[in-house]
Simulated assay, not measured.
Amino acid sequence: MALEMGLWRADGSKLERIEPTSIGLESQLETYIESDPTMLGTSLLLIGRQVPTAHGGYVDLLAVDETGTVHVLELKRDKTPRDVTAQALDYGSWVSTLSRGDIVAIWNSYKPHKPFEVAFAEAFGDAPPEDLNTSQVFTIVAATVDAATERIVRFLNEGYGIPINVVFFRHFEDGGNRYLARTWLVDHEMQPTKSGSSGKQVKSKEPWNGQDWYCSFGDDGTSRNWVDAATHGFVSAGGQSWYSRTLKNLPVGGRVFACIPGSGYVGVGTVTGTATRFDQLKIDTGDGPIFLASLPLLGNYTRPGDEDDEIAEWAVPIEWTHTVPKAKAVWQKGMFANQNSVAKLRQAFTIEQVSTAFNLDD
Rank of each mutant, 00 (worst) to 15 (best):
K326L: 14
G299V: 01
R303A: 11
A329S: 07
D279G: 10
M335R: 04
H322W: 00
T274Q: 15
N300Y: 10
G305L: 07
L295R: 11
A293K: 15
A293V: 12
G273W: 14
T302Y: 07
D309S: 13
W314K: 01
I311M: 15
D306Q: 05
V330Y: 00
I290L: 03
L281G: 08
N300I: 11
D306H: 12
A275R: 03
K333T: 05
P317M: 11
V271K: 12
V316I: 13
E310M: 09
T272S: 10
P325L: 01
R303Y: 04
A275K: 07
L292D: 03
D284V: 09
G299T: 04
D284F: 02
D306L: 06
T274R: 13
L298I: 06
R303S: 13
G305C: 07
T302I: 09
L281E: 05
V268C: 08
A337C: 06
D279W: 09
K282W: 00
G288L: 03
G334F: 02
F278A: 03
G288S: 06
W314L: 09
E310K: 10
R277C: 05
A293E: 13
E310A: 14
F336M: 08
D308G: 03
P289I: 07
G269M: 05
A315L: 10
G288K: 10
W314S: 01
M335Q: 08
I311E: 12
E319W: 00
V316R: 05
G286P: 15
A275V: 10
P317E: 07
V268D: 04
I311Y: 14
E310T: 11
L292P: 01
G269V: 04
W314E: 08
E310F: 08
V268M: 12
K282H: 11
V324L: 03
D308M: 05
D306E: 06
E307Y: 12
V271C: 11
G334P: 01
A312C: 07
W320V: 04
G334E: 14
G273N: 10
G305R: 03
Y301A: 10
L295W: 04
